[in-house]
């Protein structure tokens, strides 16, 4: 792993403490050995939001300087034992649990979702895709709730086109947990049309009760430009910026 790009938080130096529109929201992309969507996540924050974003190595023990933490896709620790099982004990995870408890915004994408499940920050577990195939495709998702920090800019029921790329995205939990997820409006995305992995109740993404921690198998960071085939993922990022601005009373009022 190149350490140079991890020790040079470019975003921080390009912006001052405040941008033209007021205080800046600070993003972290956690990098585990084997992460491979970290650059995509970093670019998505830069390109969609223009907010400062750092790569943070899995050995970090302090995330207190960040408002939003992204767990990227990939194959952390080679997916040995189970996807996310070893990453879940990385030093940075204690700080991540603390950040979740403090209400900071956390998004786990693909392998990041698997890590959140293994860490118990979200309920359930992943099984091999029912087809046993690694699926790399565009998937249609329905937005099931707009109450989370990452889905406020969508409309409930809206259908999005977001790519998937996974072999173990077959979400499973027991019946009581599923009922609990539904009762507390924690199912964030469902696949529509074909379910690509056999997940329970067509689940593609869920959140915790508070709605500040979201996990999803599809990759919104790969759907941020029409050049990439879809820009339906952009609002995951604009949503969280807006959620943060509302929470901190810094909603930009131009000309004020």
């Amino acid at each position: 792993m190149e350490t140079s790009r991890l020790t040079a938080p470019a975003g921080r130096t390009e912006h001052g403490p405040d941008g033209p529109q007021g205080p800046l929201m600070k993003f972290a992309v956690i990098v585990f050995p084997g992460s491979n969507c970290d650059v995509d996540c970093h670019k998505a924050v830069e390109d969609v939001l223009g907010q400062p974003v750092d790569y943070v190595w899995h050995t970090a023990s302090d995330l207190s300087g960040y408002d939003c933490i992204l767990l990227p896709g990939g194959f952390s620790y080679g997916d040995y034992l189970r996807c996310g099982a070893i990453a879940r004990f990385a030093p940075v995870m204690d700080a991540l649990v603390k950040a979740a408890e403090e209400g900071k915004y956390i998004l786990g994408i693909c392998n990041g979702f698997q890590i959140l499940l293994e860490a118990g920050l979200l309920p359930g577990a992943m099984l091999r895709n029912r087809s046993l195939k690694f699926r790399c495709d565009q998937a249609a998702l329905r937005v099931e709730t707009t109450r989370t920090a990452f889905t406020g800019d969508y409309r409930k029921g809206e259908i999005l086109s977001i790519p998937i790329a996974h072999g173990e995205g077959n979400y499973y939990c027991d019946e009581a947990t599923l009922a609990d997820l539904a009762a507390h409006d924690q199912i964030v995305f469902r696949y529509v049309g074909e379910n690509p992995n056999g997940s329970l109740d067509d689940i593609a993404g869920i959140c915790n009760r508070a709605g500040n921690v979201v996990g999803m198998m599809p990759h919104p960071e790969r759907a941020t430009s029409r050049l990439l085939g879809s820009e339906d993922g952009r609002r995951m990022f604009t949503s969280v910026l807006n959620a943060w601005r509302v929470k901190h009373g810094t909603a930009a009022v131009s000309g004020a």
Partner: peptide, 8 residues
Amino acid sequence: KLLANPVI
């Protein structure tokens, strides 16, 4: 703690 995931 690690070797098995009791959920599955």
